[in-house]
Structure formats: structure tokens, C-alpha cells
Design a protein around this nucleic acid. Structure first.
Lengths: 102, 102
DNA sequence: TCGACATTTAGCTAATCATCGAAATGTTTT
DNA sequence: AAAACATTTCGATGATTAGCTAAATGTCGA
């Protein structure tokens, strides 16, 4: 949970998550949206992966990243709930919560 | 908004906010809940104040800190809403339930 | 006014972090 | 097999950060 907030502390990483919200994207495709070098972005991916916020899958030459919405949701709402913020129905996860897919 | 997430990245600062959620507290009273020195805590207060997450008021010998809940709420829910997390706002793109992307 | 108390500022150190260029790894295509 | 491509690892650098001790600032009560 600390790793999630640490990951969220960087604007580049938050933007990566926002891009991934639309659809899964390859590392190179993501890189086209930023001015930093690919090694730098790769390091950001590692932080996000470490926090459980994204998952990666090799696809040919590329590596496809996709968002793990449930992790973001749990961290954000879990923390907010402690403050009485977001007294709202948690939406059913549209995404696989944990590696339960074949 | 970046300053808010940066402020939330530290566990000590998150705990300060949680303590302040119950009631306003003086710097010294807050300090009793942590193992770090008072100057260190004072620096954390400065970060939280800079982010707008707390406000301070001098009261005699003490300085009373109180939470600014609306700032926390705006940052958290504002960010979450962009992901369809948290409220009535439906997700822009319901996530692809895996596999339908060749 | 003096001394005790609460907090902050100042100055420092060690650790962490974002970034880079170059090299390495792995995959596809010719 | 070799060239081309995508991504990551390696090694280095400058910036930021959390932490400390010591000193400064400000406030109250005797």
C-alpha cells in the first residue's frame, strides 16, 4: 500500500496509468507520449509493476502493459474510506482481481 | 495536485492526516505518536501545509494543526474519477475483459 | 524580567530517485 | 545467420528527501 502511494507520487507514472486506462499499450507506444528516454520509462514501469498497479505480457517483440484497476481502486478507496471520503458503492471490478484467469 | 500526491507518499505524513481526522491537535501532541524528532515532524507539517492538506493556528504556546478534508477529498476523488473509480461516473472505456485484443 | 516550554529554522549527512547513454537481451524478418 | 527492432539492464550523475543535533524564535507564568 505504501508502494502504491509512492508510485502515485510521480506525475509521469500517473500519466502512464491514465493512458493505460483507455487500453493496454506497449512500452514503445507509451514512450511516444513522453519526452523521457526509454530506459527512464522502463524504470517507471518497474515501479508500477512493483506496486501491482500494472501487469506486463510479452507479445512478440513488444511488451504490453495493462492497468490493474482493482489495485488502484483498493488503495484509493481504502485510504479515502478511513476519512469518510467516498461513501459510495464500490463498482464491481470490470477486471480480473488477481491472477484467476486461465 | 502533484504536491498532494507527493505529500501522501510518506507513511508518517499519512498517519498525521489520520490522527488529524479525529480532531485538531497540537504539534507536540502529534509528536507523541511518532518516534522521530520534533524538527523532523515539523518538516512533515511543512510539506502537508504546502500541499494545502492541513492548516495551522497558533494557540498560546502551541500550534494547532487541523485537517483540510476538502483538499484531500478533491485530490483523491478527482483522480479516482478519471478512472471510473468511486462514483456514479461510468468508466470512459470499460476495460477489455482480456483476450478480445488480437 | 527571567526561566521554562513549544515549535521552527539552520546546517549537515545518508539514502533514495529520476534521468541519461551505452551495452545487453530477446525476437522477428530477410 | 545476420540485420533490425523493442525493451531492459548497467553504471553514473545531479536533485530531492528524511533524518539528526544544535540553535533561534516566540509565549507564558512566576
Amino acid at each position: 500500500m505504501n508502494t502504491v502511494f509512492k508510485a502515485l507520487a510521480d506525475p509521469t507514472r500517473r500519466k502512464i496509468l491514465e493512458l493505460l486506462r483507455e487500453r493496454p499499450m506497449s512500452a514503445g507506444e507509451l514512450a511516444d507520449h513522453f519526452d523521457v528516454t526509454r530506459p527512464t520509462l522502463s524504470a517507471h514501469f518497474a515501479v508500477l509493476r512493483e506496486a501491482g498497479l500494472v501487469e506486463s505480457a510479452k507479445k512478440g517483440k513488444s511488451v504490453i502493459y495493462h492497468l490493474r484497476l482493482s489495485v488502484l481502486e483498493d488503495a484509493l478507496l481504502g485510504f479515502a474510506a478511513g476519512f469518510g471520503i467516498g461513501e459510495l458503492s464500490a463498482p464491481a471490478h470490470p477486471q480480473d482481481p488477481e491472477g484467476t484467469k486461465p
